[in-house]
Design a binder for these strands. Structure first.
Lengths: 128, 128
DNA sequence: GCTCCTAATTAGAATTATTCTAATTCTAAT
DNA sequence: ATTAGAATTAGAATAATTCTAATTAGGAGC
């Protein structure tokens, strides 16, 4: 495990904030001012390929990185914000249904966060 | 519904192949040679915002578009290929667990397709 | 059938996220 | 110290997508 690899892994594992590569880069620069963005991408890719971190894609947004500990995500339809949520493990249930070995799964629940729900109400509930 | 909007919706709904914007553009040009890629993106974005099509993000790959009819996806860890699979609807079960209204959910099952499983075996099962 | 208005479409520039490449720097073994 | 190999760097390159400004098309009213 390389010098920056270790640091980046620690950053991702020690955070609940679903950072983008750019944000991880900013964090890392605070302790390692000379580090290059390419190094961050290289290490994130390697760590991901090794299964040590998760990568989360939400349509239209830059990929975010996350610890691997089993948990799922709520994604706000309005603003794209991610929130952690821990649901029961579905692997067994899913494997039984599809009949092939499931290595992992990615479950995103789409909802409306409080802020966006309020906005939606305002625009809809007008003067009928 | 605009001229191209309608055509693009038909293309996406009538296909099981999880096309990218570029692929949809190529398809569409066969019947409408003059159409612009920007028009495809504009329409895909509008259709998606209106909830008429789905957008699927897999890390590292261009977004794909899909019909909205309830179904889930198998994603191959090796090559990224998508396959359709229809599992029982989890909305109720999930809503009960998280305690907020779930508008939709996105479930991707990670597995190894046959081709990739074979490759994996070759490289691993060598001479111990 | 014209005229005007608006929305749709277009071309291409711009942006963003990410990857690639080649040069440089480390590291650690000899 | 020397050297080989891996890690890192800077910055160019690429790919996907969005933005902008100009153009076009379609319909409402004359």
């Amino acid at each position: 495990m390389t010098k920056y690899g270790k640091k980046i892994l620690e950053l991702v594992e020690g955070s609940r904030s679903h950072m983008t590569a750019e944000q991880i880069y900013d964090q890392l620069r605070q302790s390692c001012p000379g580090v290059a963005l390419a190094t961050v991408y290289n290490n994130l890719n390697r760590l991901w390929a090794e299964g040590r971190i998760r990568r989360i894609s939400v349509e239209g947004m830059a990929d975010r990185y996350d610890r691997t500990a089993r948990h799922d995500h709520l994604v706000c339809r309005g603003c794209g914000k991610l929130a952690d949520v821990t649901l029961e493990d579905l692997t067994q249930q899913l494997e039984r249904q599809v009949g092939v070995q499931i290595l992992d799964y990615d479950l995103k629940l789409v909802y409306l966060c409080d802020a966006c729900r309020r906005k939606e109400k305002e625009s809809k509930g007008g003067t009928i």
